[in-house]
Design a protein around this nucleic acid. Sequence first.
DNA 1: AACCCGTGTGCTCATTTGAGCGCACCCCGC
DNA 2: GCGGGGTGCGCTCAAATGAGCACACGGGTT
Lengths: 337, 337
Amino acid sequence: MSKVVPVTLVKDDTTRWDQNVTEALGPSARVLAAAVARRHYLAGESKVDIAGALGISRFKVARLLDLAHELGIVRIEIASDQIVDLQLSEEVREAWELHHCTVVLGHGADAVAREDLGRTAAELLCEVVTDKDVLGLPWARSVSDMIRSITAFPRIPIVQLSGSVVVPDETTSPVDIVGRIARIAGGEAHLFYAPLILDDATSATVMRRQPSVASALAAADRVTIAVAGIGAWAPGQSTVYDTIGPEDRAEAVSAGVVGEVMGIYYGADGAPVPTHLTDRMVTLTGDRLRAVPEVIGIARGRNKAQAVRGALRGGLLKSLVIDTEIAQSLLAGDWPR
Amino acid sequence: MSKVVPVTLVKDDTTRWDQNVTEALGPSARVLAAAVARRHYLAGESKVDIAGALGISRFKVARLLDLAHELGIVRIEIASDQIVDLQLSEEVREAWELHHCTVVLGHGADAVAREDLGRTAAELLCEVVTDKDVLGLPWARSVSDMIRSITAFPRIPIVQLSGSVVVPDETTSPVDIVGRIARIAGGEAHLFYAPLILDDATSATVMRRQPSVASALAAADRVTIAVAGIGAWAPGQSTVYDTIGPEDRAEAVSAGVVGEVMGIYYGADGAPVPTHLTDRMVTLTGDRLRAVPEVIGIARGRNKAQAVRGALRGGLLKSLVIDTEIAQSLLAGDWPR
DNA sequence: AACCCGTGTGCTCATTTGAGCGCACCCCGC
DNA sequence: GCGGGGTGCGCTCAAATGAGCACACGGGTT
């Protein structure tokens, strides 16, 4: 309640006798500015109240606060997250008009751990999902990484969206992975045992007519949330690429394929690429995936950047869980849309 | 401009499937909260604008910001000064209803350097003084420390308020000190050569009648700003105490003297203490000092805490430049007034 | 002297913001 | 199925706030 003796905040440079002052402001002004800042920002008092308590005008309080900002007496910082680069995430989200984007920070010099990416994707899924949703899942390594991190889930239908690929070094079998979350969720589950890719279109057609498969693929219409891995068309960047033969790879390359999502192929501009491969897949169509209201894509590593960009351009994904390298690539150089 | 998919901020603990979530909030909410906080606090956008840009209500923006505070995503801190404890200064100022208070931080374990205290006092004086003021100065070690730090000063009258004490280890002579600032200021100066304390009351009366002395003491009425050292009534804590004989010291002690300012004696409650010493001083009266609108007291060290408190209670000082020890003592235990 | 410019100050008015309210929803137990 | 408690949400109205303006003062120039 004590009144303050007026203190001129900034003296004219020519008239100040403050040549001995170390900082830009005298000690009393610093004390005053700090006191005002503390009351306003830490104690939450309104500027009017502060002005009343100190016997100065509310305008002076406001100017004092501005000054305190300029001089660095008040410092406001947005805390950095341990796991997620909050700023980069938002920049990517904004730039590509995504629903959600989560950029996972890599610890140390090396890339983001699969485990971290999977856990973060799990958190995002759990955050976004409601008990009105229908979840669609393909088979993908990154998706199984995610599912491993999920311990609780709402009781909602789970729909398998694609066949599976046998990968030697994966310990758990494909359907187990999709089945795991179905068990956790406890709702109805549309699962099937089928390979993602067959040797010819005829076999694939037959396979798609299998009741379990047909029922699951039909249920894809009802899916409201899907999670997808993103495969780049290069060795080690796509389980499909690694599975098929050299000629098939080459055909896709010459057709312009840069990546696949759930076995749906697309080019650098995101447009579907017609290929003989397409008819051999047991998966939903690109249009059906595009119609899903929320599709979360998961990807990691510089080599997948172009594939992610294509998937986004093609409208296959609505959200992303990625690492810093891909995020920076998505913001760099050629701009979206 | 991209729209945001609604995200429920806090789920009911019973309904959340976030047992795998490391933090209290999902990644998307963290990204959103951080983005809002960044836009509001760093970019300075209004909540209404942010709400419009993100397609959410301004209330949600506000709640999101509250949340960001609670979770520590936004952290506001008042920067600490290198020289002055801004918070402690304000607390003392407020508690004792001072015009200004500057608590100088000691570096390392030992006490605040005389030099730091003097420099800070100089800064405060230069900040507070205007070219309409009349400056009054006594002789005191701390005052001479301050004056040494002054290199520029407005062209105002300088009035010497007390006689001087010869201290062996001070290199500069008393009047030189007061004369120095008079030279820097360049205005009219009321200086005189006289001891602060004489052997008897008669000599003191004679001395006070000397034209130069009388003129200066008369000019004390016009003084608008004075700076004073504070002496505690103990060895090494007051140049007056150290100068006089044991009987005089004892008399003052038994009369209840705890300190002196400009040779004006007072007790623990700040009331003037009548003593034979008083008549022997060449200085202004306590009432005259109390009438000066701004008196800045300088003191350092735990031993002077009680003397400072007395001087404040007695209304001799309006402002303080002190160290952390005295400041804490002023806030501790027995409360002012 | 008269002038002008830069600076600090407080005012007015439009915008922004906060406190409280009611509504809709959902989970739970009867 | 039907209240009850809790929660998130947006509305209303009053208070707080910001942008711009006018004024006063001081120092320097014409």
